[in-house]
Design a binder for these strands. Structure first.
Lengths: 134, 134
DNA sequence: GTGATTGCAAATCTTTTGCACTAAA
DNA sequence: TTTAGTGCAAAAGATTTGCAATCAC
């Protein structure tokens, strides 16, 4: 499968102004081929090792941050000790299992917020995060 | 004011099985006298210094964790780099200002959730956290 | 006294950074 | 070539831990 040029991945990277390097292409493939994923830097690095992709942990951290800045990923805050990244950047929510430290997407339409408070003047609400801890 | 015996604080600590030591009494006073607060270990330690309370940062960390375990505090997860503790342990939600890293309580009744998804079998929802990022 | 608690310093864990080297344009 | 990106090791920041000294009972 390494024969494929991954032109779609390369296009996406180019679109964000990030050079399509070997490492970024490989990580993008791990992240975006297949269904949506929730990853930490550590776990994506492990996946890369397993797939025999040579990439340093520092580069995984940098790449996750760059992808997030570029809008390809979204950061999820559920644990004050670790950063999670979600390949699903649509508006949605999460189950978080504290026992297994695992996340599960909740489609936006499965949570209906009937009422929200007014934000302080001059500070619009940027994002509504609903986390159901299980 | 250091003349007061703080019997209420001492009672509370005794109720949790924690010995009412000088440090725990002083920190409890900082936390629970006056209105509700949102603190980090670092900031509570600074408050203690300012109040001329000699207590090490390690003890502040330990105390915050012990108070949380005892149900006197609640941990709020809004930032994957830092732990926040809330003296309000009632069911409620938060505004989080990403610019100033500051939290503001939202009374439970100001957020109405009309619909929630079913949790996975055998894993009841422990807590619903709504964070409005501003 | 005895066992819990504290303080300090060292350790740990996650994440970032400096810099020489390598690769993309 | 020129500039961006990478890897490594070191640094940084938050939190925990080991252990001797101290305090509550």
């Amino acid at each position: 499968m390494n024969a494929r040029p991954y032109s779609h991945v390369i296009e996406t990277l180019r679109g964000t102004g990030l050079r399509p390097t070997r490492q970024r292409i490989a990580l993008a493939k791990l992240l975006f081929d297949g269904g949506h994923r929730h990853v930490t830097a550590e776990c994506l690095h492990a996946d890369a090792q397993e797939a025999a992709i040579r990439v340093s942990l520092a580069t995984v951290y940098n790449t996750l941050n760059q992808f997030t800045e570029a809008g390809l990923l979204r950061e999820i805050v559920v644990d004050s000790q670790r950063c999670y990244f979600d390949t699903n950047t649509e508006n949605h929510h999460h189950f978080f299992c504290e026992e297994t430290n695992s996340l599960k997407d909740i489609p936006s339409e499965d949570v209906v917020l009937l009422k929200l408070p007014e934000p302080p003047a001059g500070k619009p609400i940027k994002r509504v995060d609903v986390v159901l801890r299980i």
